[in-house]
Design a protein around this nucleic acid. Structure first.
Length: 479
RNA sequence: GCCGGCGUAGUUCAAUGGUAGAACGGGGGACUCAUAAGCCUCAAAAAAUGGUUCAAUUCCAUUCGUCGGCACCA
């Protein structure tokens, strides 16, 4: 029986174009998914789009569009990232407007309801007529909207369904205690632990259909639709075919150590709300939540259009290629802290590591091989890669990248110190031995690169199999 | 305000109770298999004050700075 592994990104909310944060999350999850496959796991890799809720409802209306058409357009752009970023093509792409997902979410609701964790109560919301929006306390100063301080905040009473989040405090704390690696990195684990320790409040999980119709109908109550978070989180299991497909669910959710990759803004939803929801439905919790930091502009300044320091994935791929972007978010960006990104930084890393480092090394070794070896070397893939894969298994993608580039440097240094290109002129046999040893090492580099830069890894393997130097450099240096 | 993290070369990061390491970037040099790449080499750092200690960048305290969390933002 082969081992199974499940990994998912969060589903981007489709109220704007894909940005660098999405790209980073998609790429990193892809790296882990690919690396598990290489370790012979049967992998289920999920991503998709979150398409319900007030915001989309409002924005579609503002754009004068039918909501479905509005979200269709965006969903297509996000689905386009799969190809753009060279993600593994068998990734599952779920949309929360998919019929099956909607039914699945309703079933999930019914389970929570049946188990006694959903109830109805009057819900007071603070509403700013100026914004035409519901406001939270943190958005108010002196009980007035920050944007419209001259208008009184209206209190609106409405009946909503509530989820008994408060009932799960102890179970969540137990979960965290018995699974110290449940949330990665540890400081995020502490954060969520402290949040839960402070006490949990039940939250509203429905909206009045008369006010906001863009949602999944609440089972048995046509006047309400399911609050977008409650619906969206269920995608992590609906994508597996839950509840009908018991076999898949068993294989990937119960036995696939489900991992959820997300940004730091998602900590609470992924590691507390969703876990409580699963418990309420009588299902098993996720295995691990991995929390990325945010990408910022240079100098740690928040990216913004007005500062003109935004970077978008399309431009980067167009100018440097998908692999340069994959390299950057894996090797140059901190795994868990906020990190800067800019075209300039990408440019520097491209030249230093891809052109001067990897690309140049491939050229110099394969030139020696082509000129001096009579035939391609025989490769036996049996060296131990466990040290490398262990890094990836712990989501230390950056350290894994570092390990590869250390080997690249070591090979450059070896060539410099031992000069096989000279040796081969005086002692052919010895020179050929040195060169073929280098080719073997290069092949190992390609194997390690496989999950990070899949296309380049494949190119290198082909060059080695044909014993050819690349016709065009792998990564042409850019000025 | 409360809680937590951080403050090390130009930049991004590392290690350490006893001469502070790396990568990128910058200066210089010898070579040539290679993408004017690679290699060698040089310059370059511990926010401030006080304490513990034979000895502190490392432990403690305070100050300053900075970042994050403090619930419906999908």
């Amino acid at each position: 029986m082969s081992k199974s592994f499940y990994i998912t990104t969060t589903l981007p909310y489709v109220n704007s174009d894909p940005h660098m944060g999405h790209a980073m999350e998609f790429i990193r999850a892809d790296v882990i998914a690919r690396s598990k496959k290489l370790q012979n796991f049967e992998v289920f890799f999920n991503t998709g789009t979150d398409e319900h809720g007030q915001k989309l409802f409002n924005e579609a209306k503002k754009a004068g569009k039918n909501v479905k058409e509005f979200v269709d357009e965006y969903a297509e752009r996000f689905e386009g990232l799969i190809k753009l970023l060279q993600m593994t093509p068998d990734v599952h792409f779920i949309r929360t407007t998919d019929k099956h997902h909607e039914k699945s979410a309703q079933h999930f609701w019914e389970l929570c309801d049946k188990n006694g964790f959903i109830y109805k109560k009057a819900y007071k919301i603070k509403y700013c007529v100026g914004c035409e929006l519901e406001k939270t306390d943190s958005e108010l100063i002196n009980n007035r909207c920050i944007l419209h301080p001259n208008i009184e905040i209206e209190m609106i009473d409405e009946e909503n369904y509530f989820f008994k989040f408060s009932a799960f405090q102890k179970q969540l704390l137990d979960l965290y205690k018995s699974n110290p690696d449940f949330v990665i990195p540890d400081f995020r684990m502490n954060e969520i632990k402290m949040f839960v320790e402070r006490g949990l409040e039940d939250f509203s999980i429905s909206r009045l259909k008369s006010k906001m119709s863009w949602g999944i109908p609440v089972p048995g109550d046509p006047d309400h639709v399911i609050y977008v978070w409650f619906d969206a989180l269920v995608n992590y299991i609906s994508t597996l075919g839950w509840p009908e497909d018991k076999e898949n669910f068993e294989k990937f959710w119960n036995n696939g150590t489900p991992v959820q990759y997300c940004g730091k803004d998602n900590l609470r939803m992924q590691s507390a709300m969703w876990q409580a929801m699963l418990l309420a439905a009588g299902l098993s919790h996720s295995h691990q939540i991995v929390i990325n930091g945010f990408l910022t502009g240079e100098g740690g300044i928040k990216m913004s259009k007005s500062l003109d320091n935004t970077v978008n994935p399309y431009n980067v791929v167009e100018k440097y290629g998908a692999e340069a972007l994959r390299y950057y978010v894996c090797g140059e960006v901190s795994m868990f802290e906020d990190s800067p990104i800019s075209m300039d930084l990408i440019h520097q890393s491209y030249n230093a590591k891809l052109a001067n480092g990897l690309g140049n090394l491939v050229s110099r070794i394969m030139k020696m091989a082509e000129d001096n070896l009579d035939k391609p070397i025989e490769i036996i893939e049996r060296e131990d890669m466990s040290e490398y894969f262990n890094l990836l298994n712990n989501f230390e993608i950056g350290k894994a990248v570092q390990m590869i580039w250390q080997e690249i440097s070591a090979m450059d240094l070896y060539i410099q110190n031992n000069q096989p290109f000279k040796v081969v002129k005086t002692d052919k046999e010895q020179g050929q031995k040195m060169i073929s040893d280098l080719v073997v090492r290069l092949y190992s580099v390609a194997r390690m690169l496989n999950p990070i830069l899949p296309e380049t890894a494949e190119k290198i393997k082909i060059l080695i199999k044909k014993n050819k130097t690349p016709e065009v450099p792998l990564f042409l240096r850019k000025e």
